[in-house]
Structure formats: structure tokens, C-alpha cells
Design a protein around this nucleic acid. Sequence first.
DNA 1: TTGTATGCGTTATCAG
DNA 2: CTGATAACGCATACAA
Lengths: 329, 329
Amino acid sequence: MQTGKNAPTMADVAREAGVALGTVSKVVNGLSVGEAYKEKVEKAIERLGYQYNSSGRALRTDRTNIIALIIPNTINPYFALLVHHINIALEKRNYRMLLCFTEYDRNREVEFIQMARQNRVDGIIALTYNPDLTIPEDVPFVTIDRFFSVSVPCVAADNFGGGWLAANKLYELGCRHLAFMRIGSVLTNEPSKRKEGFVSACVELGIPFEVIALDDGTPLSRFQDFLTGHIHGGKLDFDGIFVGTDTLAWQVITMLRQMGINVPEDVQLIGFDGIRMFGDLNPVVSTIAQPVQEIAEACVSTVLSKHLSNVPSLICLPVKYIFGGTTKA
Amino acid sequence: MQTGKNAPTMADVAREAGVALGTVSKVVNGLSVGEAYKEKVEKAIERLGYQYNSSGRALRTDRTNIIALIIPNTINPYFALLVHHINIALEKRNYRMLLCFTEYDRNREVEFIQMARQNRVDGIIALTYNPDLTIPEDVPFVTIDRFFSVSVPCVAADNFGGGWLAANKLYELGCRHLAFMRIGSVLTNEPSKRKEGFVSACVELGIPFEVIALDDGTPLSRFQDFLTGHIHGGKLDFDGIFVGTDTLAWQVITMLRQMGINVPEDVQLIGFDGIRMFGDLNPVVSTIAQPVQEIAEACVSTVLSKHLSNVPSLICLPVKYIFGGTTKA
DNA sequence: TTGTATGCGTTATCAG
DNA sequence: CTGATAACGCATACAA
């Protein structure tokens, strides 16, 4: 029962069982073998505690059954959820996950792609921000939330629809003057469309709205300034806010509380993502929830699909509104 | 620039550079080679876009530079944080992480260990609950929060000290009648000592205390019953609660609110773990924080240490109290 | 059906 | 210091 330095090999098993090496291989891989042989081999495997060596197998077959997932981190609850569901989808198909955290670092994004190729992973799923990222063409590659080209499938929630839904929901709940707040990468990606959907809906509805979109790294106090700048006569100008992410929504709520403005009485608020407290308790805020499980499934089934060529280049999945206490019921 | 089906090999590079295969290997591995040769090889590598094949290397060297991390999930923010820091510690040492989520499933725990061995990982770090888990002896193995035997190093926070600190802190903040609440696996592991530390401190301090410890799977309503059962004259019997985890602490607070009991005015509350909102914002509750980064470092440096034999069998790291709004300042 | 032999890409040994 | 060659563990084409 050794695996470390000198683990038993198929040759050892063959010797122990008194059969040929090829026969052992067949048994291990479930190919048809005479019943008596099969039994002998299985006994020998059991006795020696044989485990196949995946390096040897990979070298021979050019397949590793490993998919690399490149993502900023697992600290952000939305990413944590995504990692979770992608892992489930992979496990179901007997694939392993090689996890790479970029921490939003452009160099790491590049290095991890290189590393994944060195490890001959069978595919890469990536959520990245590097504007100059080059997608290798020789390994199945699927992106999340960011469209590169028609030859690189991108999976994303319906961000435009989500922004539109948020505005309409707020309107439906009685709001007549809205605001959109977000902070994020300067990069134009799928989540950028949240704002477009929101604006489009406001125009459609014919209601006034404000927009503040800060670049990553801007101090949050700018939001504070924005809010205080929109107080007249002790009252906030708007009665509904759509915030780019649940995380930011939470921070905005904290600001509002400190300013003595009540949520949802004075102003209703909708976030985006669908984060839950501790991953599985109640929603943190009222929100437009991403279909994380479907996104994960789409990523995995796409990256593993044999013929990447006839796969859609943009897979856009529906979002839905979820009540989380920051809107009127 | 191919990696997929027929990526360039060292042989290709050698041919392209007009040198021998062995020379290429030396250049790739940074061994000393004549300057002219080195240059020729590097040029050829550049031209062909050569990436070494880690399966070939692993087969030859018996090292993969991969560590398997076995953990329930990444949804729980504490686990997410742990995964995060372990990954950082591994990356610093040029190791990759093969992440295995068990979802608290005993069979998965066993299967993942087997899988890790098939992949010939250089070590395993595991946070498990299976009472019958067999630790393989041929691969460096480090456990978190659970002691198996002196030959299997275990890394954990000072759980006993944490329980003791919680009780003392509550006392210091004016509490004179405490309670301890927890829910968790029936398994006796390091976190079990939180209660022991707490009880020991209460006895030392000479103050009355209650304890409710539920097995995993028990409905949370039992806590509700416990709390209502301890209300007399509209007032809770105790003025300080120590809860086994921050997650549960949050749920207890929700119950208390619904019962019209104010935190921290009527009852102060301390959790355990040190979870922050969205991973990096404010603490969720006042808490005994685990030194996650130190735990991660200890796991990695231990699992990678050449001579596992002379490593301590239990590495116990200090915790600290952090204010999070559920105690008096 | 079972057995044998070859090569996957790499590193390490050893002779030049 | 360089170059040829064997071996790592496995799957498979081919021969028996």
C-alpha cells in the first residue's frame, strides 16, 4: 500500500496477478477481459493498493481531466458561489478543478493561462480583467462576463435585462426618481450593461434619474458626496436606487443609515448578484440575482463540448428579482 | 505556438535550435549551459512558443508541485478565507492547488484522498469530518482543526483559549450570567474545545452559565426554544452569550431581535471565527477571530517540510477578540 | 481473447 | 560543457 516514492505500477500488478501488463490496463480502464483474469487482476490491485498514475496516463492520452478556473478570488461571495457551482458541474462529469486566484492582477492572469497550458489542462474557464489578455487558441477557453471574440464563448447573466428589470421593479414599487450607482473596472464588459439597461428603462418610463459610475480605486467617499449633494430639505432627491453589486449596495445602505435616511421607507434599493448571508442564508439586500448555477453549468458544458466551433459565442442567461428587505414588500 | 494536440516538445526545440535534447532541458531548468547555446535555445523556445509538459516532468521526477486541499466548501466565508490564504501561501512557494469540496460528505472525503494520490500530489491539507477517515502514510498530510495521531500534524487555532477569552471578555464588559450556544458535528475535534474553555472560565470567574450544544442537523428552532425558555419577566436570564461560530451568532441575533431583545443593550454576544462582511468589510459580530493567515502558512510550510517526522504534531495558534458591534464598546 | 512492444515528454546518467 | 540514451507509468496497435 504505497503511493509515495515507489508506488506499485501496472507492471507490479501484472506480476502479482500473473498476467500481462496490457491485461491490467484493460481491467483498470474497464475494457473487456476474461472473467478469471479480471478477478485475478482485481485481487492483485487490492493486495498492492494500486492507484493509477495520472501523469503516465496523461502523457499517453493527452488528456488530464482537469479544467483550470481563473477567477479573482473566493473572498467575494459571488465568486465563491460561482466556484462552488462550477466545481459541482465539473465533478458530475468526473473532472477536477485547478483553481487560480488572480486577485485582479493582470500579470497573474497571463501567468495562470501559461501555467494551465503547461499542465495540459483540458480547458480553461476564466473571469478576467486584463484588457490585453491573449486567449490561446489551442485549448478550449470559455470566459465569464466578458466578450473577446466570436471564437471565444462567453457566458454571462442578462446584465442589460437586469438593469432594466431593476428600474422597472422600483417604478412598480412606487419610485419616481431613480439613481444608479456603481464602481468597477474601467473595462467594458458584460456587467457594464447593467447601467445601459437601467438607463434605457428610465427613458422608457419617462422618469428622471441620476447616474454615478466610479472607476475602481476611487474612494467610496465619492458616493457619500454624491448622496449628500442630492439632499434638499432633509430629503433625498430620489426614492429608488439601483446599485451595481450587492456588496456596494450594502455599503450604500450603511452610508444612508449614517445620514439618517431609512431603507426602504425613505428610499428603496436594489442590488445585483443575489448574494446571501454566509452563502446560504437570507439575501443581503433586495437584488437582481444572477443564475449562478446555470452560469456554471453553461461554462462547464461549453468548455467540455467537443466541437467548440458550433457553440454560441455569447450565452446570456436570465436574471430574476429577489426581495431582500431593502424594497417595499 | 501550439499546445493542444501537437504542442512542440523539447525535441522540436532542439531541432529548431540545432542543439541536443539534453541541452534544451538544461536551459529550461536553469542549469549551466554555454552562453551561445543558451541563446540559441531561448530563441527557438520563443519562436515555437514552447511550454514544458508537466505530465512528462512529473512522470520523470515524481513531483507535481501540486498540493490538494480538501475542505467542505467555499460558501462558508471562513472556509473561503482559509482557501484564500492557503492559496497565497502555496503560490509564494510555486505550488499549485487542487481544490476538493466535500460538502461534508464522508464518501467524498475518502474519494478525494484517493484521487489526490492518483494525481501524485506532493501533499494533502484536509479539513474533514469523517470519523473513520484513514490517513495515508505515503504522502505528506496535514489536518486542520482535527487531531488524528502524533504522526499527522494538525493545525488549529487556540480554541480552548478562545472560549476562555470570550467568557472573560463578556465578564469584563459587565456580564454576570452567561450562555454558550453551538451546533456542529458530533465529532470531537479542536473546535469542540471552545466550549471547554468557556466553561472553565465561567467556573474560574464563579458566575452562573448555561450550555446548549446541538448536533448537526438539529432544527434551529431548538435554540429558539432554549432562548424563550430562559425568559422570565420579559427579560432574558443571561446578559452575555458566546456562540460557537459567527454564522450561528448572526442567526441567534436574528432570533433575539424577533423576540424584542436588543443586542448589545439587553444581551451582549460574541461569536467565533472572525468573518467579515463580504470577506473584507466590517466584522459581522463581535468575535474571537482565528488567525487565518497564520493557520494557512502553518499548513503549507508543514506539508512542504522535508522532514515531517520532526514537526510538531499539534500547531496551536493564538486567537484574538475583535469588536463587531454586538458587545458594548 | 491475451500478450508484447512502442512511444508519449521529460530528466538524469554517462560517455565524448 | 555537450550529446546520446535509458527510464518513468501508461495505453494501444498489433501479433499471437
